Computed example of a mutant assay.
Amino acid sequence: MSYLKLAASGVALSALMATTAAARDEIRIVGSSTVFPYTQAVAEQFANMTGAPSPIVESTGTGGGMKIFCGGIGEAHPDITGASRAMKASEYKLCQENGVTDVTEALIGFDGLSIAISRSNETDWDLSLGEIFLALAAQVPVDGEWADNPYKTWNEINADLPEVEILAYGPPPTSGTRDAFVELAMHEGCKELDFVKNGGFDKAWVAENCSRMRQDGPFVEAGENDNLIVQRLEADANSMGIFGYSFLYENLDKLKGVKIEGVEPTTDTIADKSYPVSRPLYFYVKNTHRGVIPNLEEFIAEYMSDDALAVDGYLAERGLVALSDDARTTLQDTVLNGKSMDALN
């Protein structure tokens, strides 16, 4: 660690310790709606085991959580943020600018980006990434031209699909789930189209032209509360929802997963990477708050325990796809010892 970083960390620690007498009793956590149920489960387990105040866990979305987390140090700022993607270089820069210079990154496991539909829908849905793109993208190929999306029903995209209106509820732009869905489903689906494959378009063209979700009705931004999407799917048997696998897993009595490229989202298909839309999940710890915010170290230890993270742990029971034993051991060493993440370029 450089002298400048040590000096900056010292100033930050002094500023935080000045508030110790009035430090809040509760750990404060923000971030991803996908990571939220896992962190909430650890918070409940921690409070039950220790009798300490239960950490306050807020579902703010990945982007919103990063902005709040990187806002500064001290009791007015959260200790941990969950993320359904890795921290961006711009977010790392914001942290550095606001004195949040010592952060540990924890990759806790994996998740599938599920498209789900009500169990009362009788269709055995199986969509290609290309069909998903054609249904939900703002612009698509139309008669050899790149144009506004004209498709209103699924059978207009593929005659073998039902003649029902396209309606999908999904996350807003501030969500890491949205970022991941655009990258893993929309971009890859765009690349499957003959118009793109035969046109010789490169990655930059795809990123510029295949990232926008349509805003004319078939795709609806449903906010950061995935439980609201579940309620809407129950109310309309033909509508679909886009969220992390944990929400599908917790609602399998009401919902079923839509197959993508012939593969159903399950813990096994996400773990073996046969399910094509999967991603890593993270949380980030503000190390300057360790030893100052009461119980933070103990809460982190519970989150890193084998009871929580192992393949038979209580987070796996809630849908988290666990790391390998070796990867989990490396993670535990990194997080429990507060190893600072490297600069992002």
Rank of each mutant, 00 (worst) to 15 (best):
M1T: 11
S2T: 12
A8Y: 14
A8T: 02
V11D: 13
V11Q: 12
V11S: 09
L16N: 07
A18H: 14
A18I: 04
T19N: 10
T19K: 15
A22T: 14
R24L: 11
R28W: 09
V30D: 10
V30P: 09
G31T: 06
S32D: 13
S32L: 13
S33A: 15
F36P: 07
P37I: 08
T39G: 09
A41R: 13
V42P: 11
A43S: 12
F46C: 01
T50Q: 01
A52L: 02
P53R: 04
P55T: 02
T60L: 06
G64K: 04
G64W: 01
G64C: 03
G65N: 00
G65L: 05
K67W: 11
K67S: 14
I68N: 07
I68V: 09
G74Y: 02
E75L: 11
A76T: 08
P78G: 06
P78L: 01
G82A: 10
S84H: 09
A86L: 11
M87F: 12
E91T: 06
L94Y: 07
E97K: 12
V100Q: 10
E105Q: 13
I108W: 06
D111E: 10
I117H: 10
S118V: 02
N121K: 00
N121D: 13
E122V: 10
E122I: 08
L129G: 00
L129R: 07
I132P: 05
F133D: 05
A137Y: 02
P141M: 01
V142R: 05
D143E: 15
G144V: 10
W146S: 08
A147M: 03
D148G: 01
N149W: 03
P150Q: 01
Y151P: 00
I157M: 03
N158Y: 07
V164Q: 13
I166K: 00
I166D: 04
L167V: 06
Y169R: 02
P171I: 00
P172F: 04
T174E: 08
S175I: 07
S175H: 11
G176R: 00
G176W: 04
R178A: 15
F181I: 00
F181V: 02
L184S: 12
H187Q: 10
G189H: 03
K197C: 03
K197L: 06
K203W: 11
A207F: 13
Q215C: 07
Q215V: 11
D216S: 12
P218V: 00
N227C: 04
L228W: 07
I229S: 03
I229R: 04
V230S: 05
V230N: 05
G241R: 02
I242T: 09
Y245I: 05
D253A: 12
K254Q: 04
L255R: 00
V258M: 03
K259N: 13
E261M: 07
G262S: 03
V263P: 09
V277P: 01
Y282Q: 04
V285I: 11
N287V: 07
N287G: 13
T288V: 12
I293E: 12
P294K: 09
I300K: 08
A301Q: 08
A301P: 11
E302K: 07
E302W: 15
M304F: 12
M304P: 07
A310Y: 14
A316W: 10
L320I: 01
D325S: 10
D325L: 01
D326F: 14
R328H: 14
R328W: 14
T329C: 08
L331N: 11
D333L: 01
L336T: 06
N337H: 09
G338L: 05
S340L: 05
D342F: 11
L344E: 14
L344H: 15
L344F: 15
N345F: 15
